[in-house]
Computed example of a mutant assay.
Amino acid sequence: MIRGIRGATTVEKNDETEIVQNTRQLVEEIVEQNNVKPEDIASVLISVTSDLNAGFPAKALRLIEGWTYVPVMCMKEIEVPGSLAKCIRVMMTVNTTINQQDITHVYQKNATVLRPDLSSQTEKN
């Protein structure tokens, strides 16, 4: 079965090191919470808000052992007035036997406001 796993995080400033570091932390938690292996990943899409351009968040995935062949793409998030600033969003498409309602979506830092219903789920795990 193919499932999508969502996640999001924020950074304090438009800094390549912080963008890569926070993206890596987010991806590693998604993987841990959902028992994902690199070979089970079809692709990873990463979007950033327009105020983040200091570096590619996809670089974080290349720092994780075993992720060499995982397809990843970065893109710009649509600009909606009043939306969360300095935000990095991840959509990981994986092959899994986990039921849809049992997928753990991960929201970190200020991004917990995006899906408070799912953020509380992450905190319980």
Rank of each mutant, 00 (worst) to 15 (best):
C87Q: 11
T17P: 00
I103C: 04
N125H: 14
K124V: 06
G4R: 04
K86V: 00
I2P: 00
P57H: 10
V31G: 00
R62V: 03
T97L: 12
A60V: 12
V94K: 06
P57E: 11
N53M: 12
V90W: 02
T17I: 09
A8W: 00
V94C: 04
V80H: 09
T9L: 05
L61N: 04
E123W: 14
T96Y: 01
L26N: 03
R3T: 08
K37V: 09
E16P: 01
G55K: 08
V44M: 15
T104N: 14
Q121R: 14
G66A: 05
D15F: 00
T49N: 09
T17E: 04
E32V: 10
A111C: 05
L118N: 01
N110G: 06
K109F: 02
V44G: 11
V90K: 03
I46M: 14
N95T: 10
A111V: 01
Q25P: 02
K124S: 09
V72P: 00
L61Y: 09
A54I: 02
I64Y: 08
C74T: 15
E79A: 10
V31I: 15
K124L: 08
Y69A: 05
A54E: 03
R24K: 15
C74H: 12
T104L: 14
I64A: 07
S119E: 07
L61T: 03
W67G: 05
C87E: 13
L118W: 06
A58K: 10
V90D: 04
Q25L: 14
K86E: 01
E39Y: 13
V113N: 01
I88N: 07
D102Q: 12
E12V: 05
I64K: 10
R6H: 11
M73C: 05
T10P: 01
P81C: 06
G66Y: 03
A54R: 03
C87P: 01
S119T: 10
G7F: 02
K13C: 02
M75S: 15
I5V: 11
T97F: 11
V70M: 08
E39N: 12
D40H: 12
T68I: 11
Y107R: 05
C74V: 15
T9Y: 06
D102I: 08
D40L: 10
S83T: 07
S120A: 09
S50L: 13
Q101I: 03
R89M: 10
K59S: 08
E32W: 14
T49D: 08
K124G: 00
R89I: 06
K13Q: 07
Q108Y: 02
T97D: 15
T122K: 15
T96Q: 00
A111D: 07
Q121P: 04
R89S: 04
V106H: 07
P116W: 05
V113Y: 00
G66N: 07
K124M: 09
P71Q: 14
C87T: 15
N34E: 05
V36M: 01
Q33V: 15
N95D: 05
D40R: 06
S83H: 11
C74Y: 12
